[in-house]
Design a binder for these strands. Structure first.
Ligand SMILES: [Mn+2]
Ligand SMILES: [Mn+2]
Ligand SMILES: [Zn+2]
Ligand SMILES: [Zn+2]
Lengths: 152, 152
DNA sequence: TTTAAAATAATAATGATTATCATTAATAAT
DNA sequence: ATTATTAATGATAATCATTATTATTTTAAA
């Protein structure tokens, strides 16, 4: 954890930004809830627990900054809010998501999966791929089992 | 065009919805601008040209309805607005997008491309895929050429 | 026609995000 | 150390997309 924060600190310094206490508190929340997909409000409430004096605007500004630096990715699952997702250490591309349309659960896939597709896009469409967003909508394991039970 | 509208009409009727004049005007705009990715506001302004009495709320309601029926797909490219995209005739899945980070241009890919990936997701993650959202961020052909010119 | 349900238009309300601005913290210059 | 600059913050107002409300109109059935 400390190691990870150190790296982020260096990343910020490299662009002459500082890791202020507010920024650090925000990053810590993101690290502690790495599997989750928190909205700005979610982050705000969690940060407030350890740094009660922080303002919502600062959280928005920090998340914006972290997005620019590709430390977090901003995603939108179709409910009205943006969600912020820590990029995996050293990952060149954003990871993928499985969203269950029954229960709303969100799973993560960190495997690349798109290498071949990207090659096709680069050659057939002359498009230089920098990043991607891939989300599958469907039914998670748990909900599939539920359906079986109900119908049997 | 008329044929396409007829089908949509039937689709609505099948769920006991009516193709009201407002709904038809909205669908016509979507058909006329099939390549585009219009926001609700965009659609509203275009519909107003042919049906000036329509209200914005009706456009929102219509787009919502068309989304439910899978006639249009709602997408979000990260600017603050939802965009509405006609699903290709008979397509089981939503098509893909290439968003240029330089000029903002959006290209469409109607080829499936994800068949193999979906198989992997279904078997390795036990996730029953119903649909997907895939967007590549990168540099379009035009902007690549521009860069070459500038740097030479 | 009368009646009930569905759809619409106008507009108010909501809620997420951004902008503003006065204050504070950090950094550099004297 | 003191002062001047600049960056960052917190509070809050403003904006803007979307949703809810409600009175009215349209449609289809009885
Ligand atoms: Mn994630
Ligand atoms: Mn499209
Ligand atoms: Zn589920
Ligand atoms: Zn471009």
């Amino acid at each position: 954890m400390e190691h990870r924060i150190d790296r982020i600190k260096k990343h910020l310094h490299a662009q002459s930004y500082k890791l202020t206490p507010q920024r650090e508190a925000t990053v810590r929340v993101l690290l502690e809830r790495e599997e989750d997909h928190l909205s700005a409000e979610d982050v705000y409430l969690l940060v407030k627990e350890k740094a009660p004096e922080i303002g919502l605007a600062t959280v928005y500004r920090t998340l914006e900054l972290l997005s620019e630096l590709k430390i977090v990715d901003k995603i939108n699952f179709g409910d009205g809010v943006s969600r912020y997702d820590l990029r995996k250490e050293g990952a060149a591309h954003f990871h993928h998501h499985l969203v269950c349309t029954e229960c709303g659960a969100v799973e993560e896939i960190t495997d690349d999966l798109l290498e071949d597709v990207e090659k096709i896009v680069e050659t057939d469409w002359n498009f230089k791929v920098k990043d991607h967003r891939l989300t599958f909508h469907g039914v998670c394991k748990k909900c599939q089992d539920q359906e079986l039970k109900v119908s049997s």
